Amino acid sequence: MRLDEAKRAVFFDVDDTLYDHLIPFRKTVEQVAGPRIPLAAFPYEAAYHRLRYHSDMLSLELGGAGAMEAGAATDYMRMRRFQLTMAEFGLGLTDAQAEAMQAAYIGCQYDIAMFDGARELLEALIRRGDAVGLITNGAPGHQRRKIEAMRLDGLIPRELQFVSGALGWDKPDARLFRHANARTGTRPENSVYVGDSWRNDVIGALEAGWRVVWFNHRRAARESGHEPTREASSYAELRALLLEG
């Protein structure tokens, strides 16, 4: 698909940007670890951030998302991330317990719904004539099932959906964003990326020359001297920035 290079492109991250990624994690902890920890006091958001950190680091050790579709190494990584995360919060997990947590997590991950206002914003941007797409880290099959669960194929053509595991680069590698520009015939200076992760989304898109709206709905701290173009904490704010700003 080739677009007018003057056309504005607005691309979105998927996990914890289009839907609340904390919900399946919270359900998993409650289901598997509930009898062992005081759930009312458990710091779900802090633990969720550490799970994502360990996922990223272990994935890199295995060769990135392109190597993460299936296999014993992938199974080990997904189990190990739960051991490392929960140990930081005082809960040691055996291999069997971590495997049970991973199985519960996968069972919850495709039972998802978009943030309030997310679909409406995508529809409004498309009606305005923007090229609206996705750039997401992950194994292709895994991310496809999330996209299908949110019924996004009816809104966003497959040609505008870029999954790192199918391409060989993971965010924050700027080549992923440059590839999206090359495939869609758009320019970095006319491209906006919306994402929640400082490390993957803000740094990656900025270093590719894109403008970035940091969707900081979890009030996370900045991790470097990079400066996002704008920051938003809700879809109401995103709508104002992208449609009215």
Rank of each mutant, 00 (worst) to 15 (best):
A9R: 07
A65C: 11
M114S: 11
T186K: 00
E223V: 07
G92T: 07
R78T: 12
S55P: 15
P35N: 10
V10G: 02
L241S: 09
L3S: 15
Q83T: 03
M114A: 15
F12D: 13
E148M: 05
R218L: 08
Y110N: 14
A72M: 13
F177L: 05
E207W: 03
H226I: 00
R144G: 05
V14Q: 08
D111E: 15
W169D: 08
L84C: 09
L167V: 11
V213C: 14
H217I: 02
R52A: 05
K27Y: 07
L176V: 03
F89L: 04
S55T: 15
S224W: 03
P38F: 01
F89I: 00
M77Q: 11
A131V: 09
I23D: 15
G138D: 04
I135L: 06
A100N: 07
I203L: 14
P43V: 04
A70I: 02
E30M: 03
K171I: 04
Y76K: 14
R80S: 08
S224L: 07
R218V: 07
A46M: 06
L160T: 12
D95S: 10
P157H: 03
L134I: 15
M150D: 14
A98K: 02
A70C: 08
A236M: 09
M101R: 12
A124E: 15
M101F: 13
L60G: 12
M114G: 13
R78M: 15
L22E: 13
E99A: 12
R187E: 09
K171F: 01
K7A: 14
K171P: 02
L242D: 13
F42P: 00
G185K: 02
A72C: 09
D111P: 03
I126R: 00
D116C: 00
Y235N: 03
I135H: 01
D111G: 11
T17E: 12
P35Y: 01
P172F: 06
F25Q: 13
P172E: 01
R80P: 11
E88T: 01
D4F: 07
P35Q: 07
A67Q: 15
P24C: 01
E159G: 08
E69G: 06
G195E: 02
P157G: 06
D170H: 00
I126A: 00
A205I: 03
W169Q: 04
G195Q: 03
A40R: 01
R178C: 10
M57A: 10
V29Q: 12
G165T: 10
M150N: 15
R26C: 10
R219E: 03
L242S: 08
Q109D: 15
G129P: 09
N200E: 15
R128C: 06
L160I: 01
Y53K: 07
D13W: 00
E69R: 09
A221H: 06
P38H: 04
A174M: 09
Y110W: 14
N190L: 05
A33P: 03
R50F: 09
M114R: 05
A139N: 13
R151M: 07
A87G: 04
E123G: 04
H54K: 02
